[in-house]
Design a protein around this nucleic acid. Structure first.
Lengths: 342, 342
DNA sequence: CTGAAAGCGCTTACAG
DNA sequence: CTGAAAGCGCTTACAG
C-alpha cells in the first residue's frame, strides 16, 4: 500500500432543516414543505428557502423522513447468487426499473440454503416500502410477517397458494412444451433432460411438462440426469449422457448455463458436433445464448416483461394495498438458433 | 393475470420498544439496552424483556436507531451495468463480503454517462456508513461532498490523486506487461490490441503498458482497434482485425468479454483456428474464461483479493476515520489456457 | 400560506 | 443496574 496523504478532514454534520430555516428567516415547517411534493408554499418563500438550502448544501435526511411514517423509497431485494448469467441480467434490469420509479434497492442475500425469512426480516427492519424476492420460495409464516406489516411482497419465479403475495413467474410448462413440440416435429428421436436444482420451483414445472409432452408425443425421454443450473453441472451431465453407449441425440436443459456446459462437454470433451450429432436446447435466453460461440436454441424467459410486471405490481400495491392478489405468468417463446435443428 | 384471492390483511404496526417495555414491566431504556451490544443490563431483566419482545415480534426500527446518530449499517454501492460478467462477479462477492461484516448494500446505479455524483448523494441521503464505488471515476467535488460528511469513500478500479478516498485497483500495467512478456517469448510475431472503453481508467493503463513493452521488446503492436468492453465490440474488432490482408497472429483484449467476441469472430465467422492461426488473450479471468468453449488465456484480476481489501479498508476507516488514505494495487497473474500458445 | 407543537422510535448521557 | 428525560431531523395535523 502506498500512502498518498493524511490530511484529516473535519467531520462536518449535514445541514438540517432548522439551520436552513434560520438562514432563510422562515419556520422549519416551511423548509419541510419546500421538500414535500404537493405541499402549499408561497413562491417567494420557496425561493428564500431554496437559496438557503443551496448555500448550506441541504438535503433532507431520508431516515428522519422515513421515521415519521411516510415512505422510505427503499425496496428490499432478496437474491441468491448473482454470478449466474440469468440472475445477474434480471437483477440488472430490476434495479434499473426500481430506480425509474424512485425506489432504491436494499440488497439482502438469501443464504445458500435458500432461506428467505431472515433476509426478509432484515429488510423490514429498514422500513422498506416493499420487498421483491428473486430467489427461492417463501413459507406461509414468512409471508405473514411481511403482510402483517403491510409491506407488499412480490415473488419472482415462485408461485404460492398463499394469497397474500403477488407472484410473477414464467409459464415454465408452456416453455417446456414448446421445446417438446419442436423436438417431436424434428428428426431427433432420443431426447434426454438435464434437470436444474431439484429444489427449485421452476425445475418441477419444466421437467414435468417436458416429460409428459414427449411421452404423449410418442417419443418418451430416454434419460434424465441431474444438473444444478450451473455450467459445471451441465458439463458433468453432458459427459455422463453423451459418453454412454446409446447416447441421446437431443438434450433439453433446465437453463442456459447448463446447456452451455452440455455443449462444451459434447464439442470440447467428446468431439461431437452440435447440432449434427446432438441437439442442445436451453431455457432463459441469457444474452450469451446469442453469442456465436454457443448460438443456443432456447426458451426465452422474457426479462423485460418480468421486470415491467414486478415494477407495475409494486407501484399498484403501493397506491392501493387492498387490490386482489395476483399471479402473473409471463409467456415464453422458442428462440431457434444453431444448437438444434428444430 | 389470475386472481387467487382478495382477503385484506389488517395493516398492523410493528411493535415498539415502549410496548415491549410495558409488557415486560420495565422502562423503555431497558428494552433499548437489551438490543444494544455492550450495554449493561441485569440477566433477569434481559430475560423479561426478551420474552416480551418475542411475544410481540419486536425488532428495533433501524431507521430510528440510525437517526440518533450511531450507525445505519447501510453501505452505498455505486455500480454501472451489472449484466457484464466481471461486474456481476465482483458485485456478487462484494455484497457477500459486506454482509459478512453486517453491512447492507444500498445499490445506486450510476447513469450511463458514468456520473457518480448523483448516485453518491442519493446514498448519503440515507446516512450510509460508507460508499463503495465500483463504476467510473469521481471528481474532486464529489469526493469532498462525501468527506465533509465524514463518510468513508472507497473506489474500485480508479486511482485518484485526491487524497480523501481509499482506492483499490488492479495493477493494470503489470498485468499488461505479463501479456507482453509472454508474447515476446512466444512464436507470435504480429500482436494487435483491442481497447476497452476509452473513458475507463483501466483502459489507459493497460494500453499504454502493453504498447510500451511490446515496442521495447522489438515487436511493436501492429494495430490498435477500438472495443468497448463488450462481446459485440470484440466481435466487430475481431472481424476488422482478422479479415484484413495482413492479419495479426495475436490479439490482446481490454477485457475477457472482448476476447470472447474476438474468439467468436475468428472461429465462427472467419474459420480461423485459435490458438494456431491467432492467439487471443483477455483481462480479468471471469469464471467463464475457464469454460472449455473459450478456454481463455487471460490476466487474473483477483476479485477475492479486491473484495477483501475493500472490506478491510471500510472496516478500518469505520473504526478510525483518521487513518492515512491509501491506494492499494492488487497483483495480477497470467493464467495460461488454450487460447494462446504462450 | 404560515408557524408552533406534537410525535415518529429509538439512543444516550444523567442521576440514582 | 435502572429509569426519566432530552434529543436525533423530520412530517403532519392544527390554528391562525
Amino acid at each position: 500500500m502506498t500512502d498518498i496523504g493524511s490530511d484529516r478532514v473535519e467531520r462536518r454534520r449535514r445541514a438540517t432543516s432548522v439551520e436552513v430555516a434560520r438562514l432563510a428567516g422562515v419556520s422549519q415547517s416551511a423548509v419541510s414543505r419546500c421538500f414535500t411534493v404537493g405541499a402549499s408554499i408561497a413562491p417567494d418563500t420557496r425561493e428564500k428557502v431554496m437559496t438557503a438550502a443551496r448555500a448550506l448544501g441541504y438535503r433532507p435526511n431520508v431516515l428522519a423522513r422515513g421515521l415519521v411514517g411516510s415512505r422510505t423509497d427503499l425496496v428490499g431485494v432478496v437474491v441468491g447468487n448473482l454470478d449466474t448469467p440469468f440472475e445477474a441480467f434480471l437483477f440488472d434490469r430490476l434495479t434499473d426499473a426500481l430506480a425509474a420509479i424512485g425506489k432504491k434497492p436494499l440488497v439482502v442475500r438469501s443464504d445458500p440454503a435458500g432461506d428467505v425469512a431472515r433476509p426478509l426480516l432484515a429488510a423490514l427492519d429498514y422500513q422498506v416500502d416493499g420487498v421483491v424476492v428473486l430467489a427461492g420460495g417463501v413459507t406461509r409464516a414468512t409471508v405473514d410477517s411481511a403482510k402483517l406489516l403491510g409491506v407488499p411482497l412480490i415473488l419472482y419465479g415462485f408461485v404460492t397458494t398463499a394469497d397474500l403475495v403477488d407472484c410473477v413467474c414464467c409459464d415454465n410448462a408452456a416453455g417446456a412444451r414448446l421445446v417438446a413440440d419442436a423436438l417431436l416435429a424434428s428428426r431427433y428421436r432420443r431426447a434426454a433432460y438435464v434437470t436444474g436444482r431439484s429444489s427449485a420451483f421452476s425445475e418441477g414445472e419444466r421437467r414435468a411438462a417436458f416429460l409428459d409432452r414427449m411421452a404423449r408425443g410418442g417419443r418418451p425421454v430416454v434419460r434424465v440426469v441431474e444438473g444444478d443450473y450451473s455450467h459445471a453441472g451441465g458439463m458433468r451431465a453432458g459427459l455422463a449422457l453423451l459418453s454412454a453407449a446409446a447416447r441421446p441425440d437431443a438434450v433439453f436443459c433446465g437453463n442456459d448455463a447448463t446447456a452451455f456446459g452440455v455443449i462444451d462437454a459434447a464439442r470440447r470433451r467428446l468431439g461431437l458436433r452440435v447440432p449434427e450429432d446432438v441437439a442442445v436446447i436451453g431455457f432463459d435466453d441469457v444474452p450469451m445464448a446469442a453469442w456465436p460461440g454457443y448460438d443456443l436454441t432456447t426458451v426465452r424467459n422474457p426479462v423485460d416483461a418480468i421486470v415491467a410486471t414486478v415494477r407495475d405490481m409494486l407501484a399498484r400495491r403501493l397506491a392501493d394495498a387492498g387490490e386482489p392478489y395476483v399471479v402473473h405468468r409471463t409467456t415464453p417463446t422458442l428462440v431457434r438458433r444453431g444448437s438444434a435443428a428444430v
